[in-house]
């Protein structure tokens, strides 16, 4: 069984070799971003990037870096509240795109009387619940099944950094160190810095800490890793350099 994900470079409209597409006996095939299903059984890439398959989960997607964020259901995103209307907040996910709608009751323990008051410009960490073409996406800050926030909700203080979409995805991987090859946050943590982060799939990273210096350092480390495409060894070096500079 091929555990290792295979990587093939594809261009939009390329034919995908059917042997690459995972076929699990029971589970349905899951399509990730960058692929389009043309019934009955044709798959077409819509972006240029690496075709990645996961046989275990029976899923296939195209991995690419850059471009504008296109919301997909289940994505964790960081948005800025643009304005509030009756029952809804309108949230900006990326600049110059139409806003996403966040129901004011979609927060933990929110009722008509106890819903959180967010001013325009406030940051929220949310999950995309509805994403269709040509429609404004919808968000939630509470798990529909458990009714718990699960880490979602308004983000107070801290600083927001722009990162590339690929970097955001790498940071959000369950095993970001092994698969995503990002060790920078772990390194910073082991260097004795205390901070918290939230990563949005829409290319945003929020960093908070007691000390302003730490926030700046974490932000710069991640942005530099992203921009210069550093590998694990270089990331470690960068962290050592930055920590040394700070102290």
């Amino acid at each position: 069984m091929a555990q290792q994900t295979e990587r093939i470079f594809v261009l939009p409209g390329d034919q995908i070799n059917p042997s690459v597409i995972p076929s699990h006996p029971k589970r349905p095939l899951k399509l990730g971003p960058g692929l389009r299903h043309i019934p009955p059984s044709e798959l077409l890439p819509t972006v240029a990037g690496q075709l990645v398959t996961d046989y275990k989960k029976n899923s296939i997607w195209v991995e690419y870096n850059g471009g504008r964020y296109i919301p997909a259901v289940g994505d964790l995103v960081i948005g800025t509240v643009a304005r509030s209307v009756v029952d809804y907040y309108y949230v900006t996910l990326s600049d110059y795109t139409s806003n996403a709608a966040l129901p004011q009751l979609a927060f933990e323990m929110a009722t008509k009387k106890t819903r959180p008051q967010l001013n325009p410009g406030a940051l929220v960490y949310a999950r995309v619940t509805l994403a269709n073409r040509h429609m404004d996406p919808e968000l939630e800050c509470v798990s529909a099944t458990s009714g718990k926030a699960e880490g979602l909700g308004p983000l107070n203080g801290g600083m927001l950094y722009d990162i590339s979409l690929g970097m955001a995805r790498r940071l959000l991987m369950r095993k970001s160190v092994e698969e995503g090859k990002v060790v920078v946050l772990e390194e910073l943590g082991s260097a004795g810095l205390a901070f918290e982060t939230a990563v949005g799939r829409n290319g945003k990273m929020w960093v908070n800490s007691e000390s302003t210096k730490t926030v700046l350092l974490v932000g710069r480390a991640v942005q530099e890793t992203d921009e210069k495409n550093l590998d694990a060894e270089q990331q470690k070096k960068l962290v050592r350099k930055l920590v040394k500079e700070m102290s």
């Binding site: 800025t80 509240v81 643009a82 304005r83 325009p120 410009g121």
Partner: peptide, 9 residues
């Protein structure tokens, strides 16, 4: 429109 949309009210 709105400069009211974010921040400056």
């Amino acid at each position: 429109s709105a400069s009211t949309a974010t921040g400056s009210n």
